[in-house]
C-alpha cells in the first residue's frame, strides 16, 4: 500500500498596484464616457484597440487618437460553464475575439444578450462573422468592464 506523507500548506497573498500610464488612462477615461478609443500608426497604416502607446508592428510612439466603432464582427469565440480564475462574473460565459469596424486587430471581450444556459442556442446565435455591438453598464467606472459585453445586432 502506498504511504501518505505530510503536506504543508501555504498561502501567498501579494497585492499589486499597477501604473496604467497616460495611454491606458485616456482609454479608461473614454470608457467612462461610453467611447472606445484606439490609436493609429501612420507608417503601418493600422488602428489598434485598445489604444496603444506604441505600435506593436514598428514600435513607433503613437499619438493619433481615434474613437473606434462600437460595432464589429465575431472572429472567434468560446463558451464555458466552468469558473476560471479572474473571470468577471459567474459562468456560463461566452468570450470572443471581435474585429471592430475600421480597426486592424481583434478585441477580446464578452458576448451577451443571448441565452447562455444552452450551448446549442449559443452556437446558433454566435458564429464567425456575426455582427455585434457594445453594451454598456449604466454605471461607468473608467474600467475595462464598463463595456458589459457585446450583443448580436438584430
Amino acid at each position: 500500500m502506498k504511504k501518505d506523507f505530510y503536506t504543508v500548506s501555504n498561502v501567498i497573498r501579494l497585492p499589486h498596484k499597477y501604473a496604467a500610464g497616460p495611454t491606458f488612462t485616456r482609454f479608461y477615461n473614454g470608457l467612462e464616457e461610453g467611447k472606445i478609443y484606439g490609436t493609429s500608426c501612420p507608417s503601418c497604416k493600422k488602428t489598434f484597440v485598445p489604444a496603444r502607446s506604441f505600435c506593436p508592428g514598428c514600435c513607433a510612439n503613437l499619438d493619433e487618437w481615434v474613437e473606434v466603432s462600437q460595432e464589429g464582427e465575431v472572429v472567434s469565440w468560446t463558451y464555458t460553464d466552468r469558473e476560471f480564475f479572474g473571470m468577471p462574473g459567474k459562468p456560463p460565459v461566452v468570450l470572443a475575439l471581435i474585429r471592430l469596424d475600421g480597426t486592424d486587430c481583434d478585441f477580446l471581450h464578452l458576448i451577451g444578450g443571448i441565452d447562455q444556459d444552452d450551448l446549442e442556442k449559443v452556437k446558433s446565435s454566435i458564429k464567425r462573422g456575426t455582427r455585434v455591438r457594445a453594451r454598456w453598464n449604466d454605471e461607468k467606472k473608467g474600467h475595462m468592464l464598463d463595456i458589459k459585453c457585446f450583443e448580436p445586432v438584430s
Binding site: P50, T78, F84, P88, L95, A96, L108, R128
Partner: peptide
C-alpha cells in the same frame, strides 16, 4: 497583463478554444 486581457482568457483552455474556432 492586468489592464485588459486578464479578465477574458478563461485560463489556457479559453485561449486555445478560440484559436481552434479561428
Amino acid at each position: 497583463e492586468p489592464f485588459y486581457q486578464r479578465y477574458f482568457i478563461a485560463g489556457a483552455p479559453g485561449v486555445f478554444s478560440m484559436q481552434c474556432q479561428e
